[in-house]
Design a protein around this nucleic acid. Structure first.
Lengths: 96, 96
DNA sequence: CCTACAGTTGCATAGTTCTTGAAATGAAGA
DNA sequence: TCTTCATTTCAAGAACTATGCAACTGTAGG
C-alpha cells in the first residue's frame, strides 16, 4: 500500500530536527560526527534521527573505517526536499 | 524560518487519513460530504483533518451555498504528492 | 421564524512520538 | 588483547497528536 509507506516517509521528514538533517545532507554525504557538529545536537539524538530516516528509506548509510557516512537515498528525495522548502518559502501558512 | 513551515506541512501530510484526503483531492475539488462518502470516515474527523491541511497551507476552501469545496492549494502540492507516492511505490522501506 | 442540512468546534481520553542519558556494540590501532 | 573512538541501542518520562462524540454555527427553503 503506497499510502502507508508515503505517510511514513512524510512523517519521518516532518520533524524539524530530522528535516534539518535532510537539508544538510542535500549538499552531500556526511558522517555522524559532522552532523553532530553542524547541528549542535547530542550524538544519540542525531543517531536515532538518522536511524528513523534510514528505516523510512529517505537516507542510506555506508561504513568507512570508524565512520559511517549518510546520504540522501536518491534524487527523488532531494527534489522532494527542494519542492517542500520552496513551497514553504513561497506560501505562508495561515494562523487565524 | 522555512524549516518550521515545511516540517509542519510534511507532518500534516504524514498522517495516512490526511494523505488519503490529499490523494482524493488531487483528482479535483470535492465538498466535505463527498470526502466523507469516499473515505467512509465520520464527518467531524474529516472536517478536522481538512482544517489542519488548510492551516498548514496544503488545501484551500471555497463556500458554495450549503457546501464547502476543498482543493489542493496549488500545483506545488500536487507535484509534491505525486513525487511522494511515486517514491513510495518505487522504493521499499526496510523493516529489519 | 422555524426547520433541516452541511460543516465546524470543544473536550476528554488513548495512543504516539521526542528526548535524555546510560550502557552496549563494533572497528581499528598499540 | 586492551584501549579508544564512533556510533547505536535501551528504557523512562514528558510532550504531542489523533479520535470519538456532543454541542454549536451558519445557510437555504418553506
Amino acid at each position: 500500500m503506497a499510502i502507508a509507506r508515503a505517510s511514513g516517509m512524510l512523517r519521518a521528514a516532518g520533524d524539524p530536527a530530522r528535516l534539518r538533517l535532510l537539508e544538510v545532507l542535500s549538499s552531500g554525504e556526511r558522517c555522524v560526527s559532522d552532523l553532530v557538529a553542524v547541528t549542535g545536537d547530542p550524538m544519540p539524538a542525531v543517531s536515532q534521527r538518522l536511524g528513523r530516516l534510514r528505516t523510512e528509506g529517505l537516507v542510506v548509510s555506508r561504513r568507512d573505517g570508524k565512520h559511517i557516512h549518510y546520504a540522501l537515498a536518491d534524487g527523488h528525495v532531494a527534489s522532494l526536499l527542494l519542492a517542500v522548502l520552496d513551497h514553504a518559502d513561497h506560501s505562508a501558512a495561515r494562523t487565524p
